[in-house]
Write a protein that binds this DNA or RNA. Structure first.
Lengths: 249, 249
DNA sequence: TCAAATTTGCTCAAATTTGATTATTTATAA
DNA sequence: TTATAAATAATCAAATTTGAGCAAATTTGA
């Protein structure tokens, strides 16, 4: 791979998500950490990015939430979330018809998707763009776009999903609870998630350990409907209720 | 094989992929790496590409999906296209239900939209994101996304538009011609444009003077169906056929 | 047709990049 | 604060890329 290709990829990743760790970049680009460090130094030298301890952050102020005094470490992403994303991406086959839900974990997942003939449908504007820039076959759900998350919601979106029959759906969630199941704060987003899961043969929920034992207003699926992909399982009480794949990071 | 043929092929590959390695090129062109290196040196010498260690990269900034955020670039924009965009943006009222077609001129238009209660529907991924970042009420058409332009196309998109009744549609075009009307190179994109115009009370086509007297394979509307917003009108022959608003820049 | 000029492919030493290792620096937790 | 863990720069060997030299193949022009 050409050095300039790596530079481009690194800058793309940074501009799309704001920051990245050295480990993460080395995994995505399939190269050593030494090389990534050298690349980051070069790009930092020419003012294309800000190198920080552990990785790099985008030069232009991240649109949205102000982040000024945040410790550098916190800006960078944990490897745990990374391995969830990686594991999920590996589940995709050439003949799949995939739904990708909006959310940061599913977004990260796209970075790890290899060249594939699979077809992707998403309700995330950013996800759609990422899929495109990886040269994948992308479709988007039509409807109202929610400002904060850049996710398509509303009845239009639900009707769009009606026509599809997915082989696999990759979902994000805010809370996972034995009684309440998978929950989210937004009623419209919940409806979309519900419908996507309904129209998919298998559904995976990507969730790091912090999501367990949290409950939000809207339940979009009971535990048993989705297979959970997580970094570490805090208690076995969940594993009785559904299939869980624990990824070792 | 003629050397000039190789040059052409190399430049084609570069402009479509952005970069290529010497090994790749030697395989594609079925020639030795030495020859490719000599070719690259020649082309680099005449400024047609950038030679880098391992291969070469396209001279012009990669025409990818990414279209950088705008604020600073506004200054760089040609005044002509600017004033078209500005004029169009001023046509929007609070009670409008607007369709915004994909394309660079319409994209620029979004920069000039003031805070409004109007509702926007678009088929451009980038347009949707821009509308969102301006805090506007945005909807997106669902369907297959075309890689180059990041525009939603296909039957799904057409069905999405069916449900809407726009007050105003702002369209881009590739060619404007007395006989052929408004034309575009892509059949799928043409269909979407056609439907959007059909479902809109008034349609505006944003086009700088370079678009006049050009014809592309697909006609999406006859001249009289849309009001043209342009920077300067080269000949009055068009004004007999449709309403034209000429913006003085 | 033939000789000269040009282009091509091959080989090899020099230059460059890469990945692993190690000592040093930096961040976090105690 | 100090101890501990993590990340880094520096270093070096291995792998890769490069350009130069040269002979073979091809094209050109008389």
């Amino acid at each position: 791979m050409l050095a300039s290709e790596r530079y481009r990829t690194i800058l793309n990743i940074l501009s799309s998500r704001g920051s990245a760790t050295v480990t993460e970049l080395s995994q995505i680009l399939k190269t050593s950490e030494s090389t990534i460090r050298r690349d980051l130094n070069t790009l930092d030298g020419s003012g294309k990015l800000n190198k920080v301890f552990g990785g790099a952050v985008s030069i232009k102020p991240t649109e949205g939430v102000a982040e000024q005094a945040v410790p550098t470490r916190e800006i960078l992403m944990s490897d745990e979330k990374n391995s969830i994303a990686k594991y999920a991406a590996a589940l995709i086959n050439d003949d799949d018809f995939i739904y990708i839900d909006s959310g940061t974990t599913t977004s990260r997942m796209i970075d790890f998707i290899e060249n594939t003939k699979a077809i992707f449908v998403t309700n995330g504007i950013i996800h759609a763009q990422k899929l495109l820039s990886k040269g994948l076959n992308a479709y988007i759900i039509g409807g109202k776009i929610k400002a904060v998350t850049a996710a398509v919601i509303g009845s239009g979106g639900i009707r769009s999903i009606e026509n599809y029959n997915f082989t696999k759906a990759f979902m994000g969630t805010n809370g996972i609870d034995i009684q309440a199941g998978f929950t989210t704060p937004d009623i419209e987003e919940g409806r979309i998630k519900e419908k996507a899961i309904e129209k998919s043969y298998i559904s995976f929920v990507l969730a790091d350990h912090s999501k367990f034992r949290k409950v939000f207003p809207i339940t979009f699926a009971p535990l048993k409907k989705c297979c959970i992909i997580t970094d570490r399982l805090l208690c076995s009480e969940f594993s009785d209720k559904t299939v869980i794949r624990e990824v070792i990071s």
